[in-house]
Nucleic acid binder design. Structure first.
Ligand SMILES: [Mn+2]
Ligand SMILES: [Mn+2]
Ligand SMILES: [Zn+2]
Ligand SMILES: [Zn+2]
Lengths: 153, 153
DNA sequence: ATCACAAATGAGAATAATTCTCATTAAAGC
DNA sequence: GCTTTAATGAGAATTATTCTCATTTGTGAT
């Protein structure tokens, strides 16, 4: 049983953060981190499991859930919910912005965000150290506005 | 079988919206709407079922899920996720703002929000008709900053 | 390099959450 | 009141998540 060396230029600083917090650096954890670093967007636990297994075949489902919980606690990832499809995970650095149509579920992503400046004010007001945010606007998309407005879907 | 008249001063305009969209006004729907109107915050499907049954005893679980889906489509309610506790539902008018601690999960609610003004710009930029938003900041709360920062929980 | 030990893991069982099925009921329009 | 058809409730079925526990494996100390 020599093997299982994932040959990854893995983001060293995340490893440091894990180690600093007293957690062991294990192949499944490296795999999950790598998957989320790489893809970064909207992967659910099942998809993360599958992609992690591509890197470390023995990875188990429970471990993926445990790792996601851990990484969430450490503020490295964050669950994000689009539609009613259960949680997906994204990197918890930076910001994430959605325009969500209540009627059809279409999602538009956008970048610029006034919330960035709000962060500072909130830090002093509430004493939080803010590391990321999520801003979602809900409404009706252009396509749904033209189609008969009283009929859902 | 005469009965089951829920004696509610139920918000007439929501009834209109349901009817206008071609849906029937039924006791379970009235009950669910009433529950969410009344409480407004952070109720999960189970809690909504229980409170709805207090208004209309026969209300079934599946109907609650179906009604929440419908009301979400109509933009009347919206799922909101705090921590890993699964969805809860709030009214989808107005805005909702959270400060969330990545470490302990504490949530601080706040009001003032620069996002309100962003809405207008986004409406013209993307053609969305925006009805509500959710803005969540993630970070570390004051309590967790003082306690040993490297240890989770 | 070997060792000791607690932390971490994986398999599968157990549980919880959500959706589906289908026979029955009851709103809405006439 | 009658008809039509959407909506409902009970429970089964399915999915998602968590738990259990025997085994493995990082890690820090020899
Ligand atoms: Mn996105
Ligand atoms: Mn809230
Ligand atoms: Zn739409
Ligand atoms: Zn905290």
């Amino acid at each position: 049983m020599r093997n299982h060396a994932i040959i990854l230029p893995m983001s060293t600083d995340l490893i440091q953060r894990l180690r600093a917090a007293g957690y062991k650096i294990t192949p499944p954890r490296l795999a999950v981190i790598e998957v989320i670093q790489r893809e970064g967007e909207h992967l659910n636990p099942q998809e993360i499991l599958e992609q992690a297994q591509a890197l470390h075949a023995q990875t188990g489902r429970a471990t993926v859930y445990r790792t996601l919980e851990l990484l969430t606690q450490l503020g490295i990832v964050r669950p994000i919910y689009v539609g009613d499809n259960g949680p997906t995970y994204i990197r918890a650095d930076g910001a994430h912005h959605h325009l969500v149509c209540s009627r059809c579920g279409r999602i538009v992503e956008f970048d610029a965000c006034a919330a960035d400046s709000m962060g500072c004010e909130l830090e002093s007001r509430f004493g939080f150290h803010i590391t990321s945010h999520l801003l979602e606007f809900y409404g009706i998309c252009p396509q749904c506005q033209t189609s008969d407005a009283s009929q859902s879907q």
